[in-house]
Amino acid sequence: MNRNGQTPLVEMKDVSISFGGIKAVDHVSIDLYPGEVVGLLGHNGAGKSTLIKILSGAYQMDAGEIRINGKKATIENPRDARAHNIETIYQTLALADNLDAASNLFLGRELVKNGLVDDAKMEAETRKIMGRLNPNFKKFNVPVSALSGGQRQSVAIARAVYFNARILIMDEPTAALGPHETQMVAELISELKAQGLGIFLIEHDIHNVMKLCDRASVMKNGELVGTVNVDEVTDDDILGMIILGKKPAHLAA
């Protein structure tokens, strides 16, 4: 697929991974273009998170190919993914609870001065980006275990956004949030999209999918049911794909 002559940011082709004989992801192909939000949907255990963890380097695929910007990419660990400007916001947030916001934001990529980590600089940078993402955030000098769910979420988001990601993976970013915070995340997604980032969004709420995504890829039992343009389908069409595992009749080729 080559939309408007653009090269896709990400192409995952025929990707498979098994855990002890169970095919968690079975020959799945999805892609992502700049400035696009692709929703990943499906029941729990459909393979969405597993697929995404292959892209973020947490799992290694058994078969298939990943292309980044049209070039074949080898992603064997989270460091490789970061080197390809892929950032991930995990459902669990993956924060070290005993460290403060700045230490978490820069974890694995600390700013160093004279061989020692420059905490003051990192805190200053963290204050800057949090001022943009969550101006109410004030707790910079406490472990993140002392923060509320929404505040922790904004630390995880700041970490993904700060390092100039080109490809952003968000695994249920609004699952633990209240309405106001959910709205803030939605605004952020639109803003990042406008900046030309590609975003994979794992989301259970069909309403959010219809609102935020350009396309939606539905998975069931490790296989891809299909990918649809969101403005060509209804909520019920997508629900049908999730539950029945079939593309809606008017789109089925």
């Binding site: 380097g57 947490a58 460091r79 005993n98 980590v117």
Partner: peptide, 20 residues
Amino acid sequence: RFGRYIFAAGGNPDAAELSG
């Protein structure tokens, strides 16, 4: 960094791993 990673790995081993 070494020290920071020790504390990160102790606070959340998965987070340390996923942070590269």
